[in-house]
Design a protein around this nucleic acid. Sequence first.
DNA 1: CGACTCATGTAATTGGTTACATGATTAG
DNA 2: CTAATCATGTAACCAATTACATGAGTCG
Lengths: 166, 166
Amino acid sequence: MSLRMALLGLLSVKGPASGYDLAKKFEISLNHVWQAGHTQIYPELVKMAADGLVDAGSEGARGRKTYTITPEGTRRLHEWMIEHAAVGVTRSEVALQAFMLPLLGRDDAIAVMERIRAGFQRRLAMLEGQSPASFGAYALRLGLAQAQVSLQWADEVLAELRDSAG
Amino acid sequence: MSLRMALLGLLSVKGPASGYDLAKKFEISLNHVWQAGHTQIYPELVKMAADGLVDAGSEGARGRKTYTITPEGTRRLHEWMIEHAAVGVTRSEVALQAFMLPLLGRDDAIAVMERIRAGFQRRLAMLEGQSPASFGAYALRLGLAQAQVSLQWADEVLAELRDSAG
DNA sequence: CGACTCATGTAATTGGTTACATGATTAG
DNA sequence: CTAATCATGTAACCAATTACATGAGTCG
């Protein structure tokens, strides 16, 4: 359902788009929030058209199909936003490795934490490169705050590990 | 693979356990990091036994089966920790709703944000109820830091929405 | 004896990833 | 002409959820 809603959201804000366009938007603007490749997007758009949430326009150049959100699609998106209590379920490989960190010796633990730290650093840099004035500004600010605090956590853990006897 | 590693981690630290025990541990100590129900755990343990990562003991009372990690299981877990670069992939319904918040009018947006805020509040309370001295201390601290900063973000967004003209 | 917890499983379905496959158009 | 980008799709597989199903032991 979330993929569906993400697609409706993009179509709602950015206007009519092809599956290809939407896949691009997932890569750039939505990347920190939700991910989907074209292999998931194309079939989903077909189902959404069958359900009357989008209109599939006629084929353009290179077989391009442009989808437009329908009033019913807009209605369903708003309904979902207002009624669906988003589940804050987290499945984080990083947190899992952090959980099990005490299984490793000091040096291995430091190496793992440095890799994790680098990941947070990369993520932060990616988010800082995004335009803060755009549509997804609230989500961007959340992502930035979380990335910053995670990086800080990694630094603290690294400092503790380095202070500990080897 | 992550489920497998989480199971090996639990068996490694807490000693031999049944699928039932492991499902309980997922609910309590590991809940903020990874989730898995018994319907996923039982078949996975069978596969892990076939792959030599765990030993399935003989059946006890009420058909209880106690699994023990093997040396090969320990080896594979350490290997994964050290070599597998955890992907920081995030798929958050909350962030998705935040992303699309501008689609809603002021009052609906406030209602959605209040619900999101309550979710973070609950999560924070849950984490604060966990023993900070236990095995998963590092992951717990990360979870707490992220929950706190998320709650702060929600408060800021709510203040902005309330200040804005209705 | 009835309710609860312990304990294990299967089947169907949904969601998501990886690999494979094809062809049109554009820029150099 | 050829490499890159545009553009769409299918098939196989892996991961996860929901629903269904069963039975043993324990507490009141």
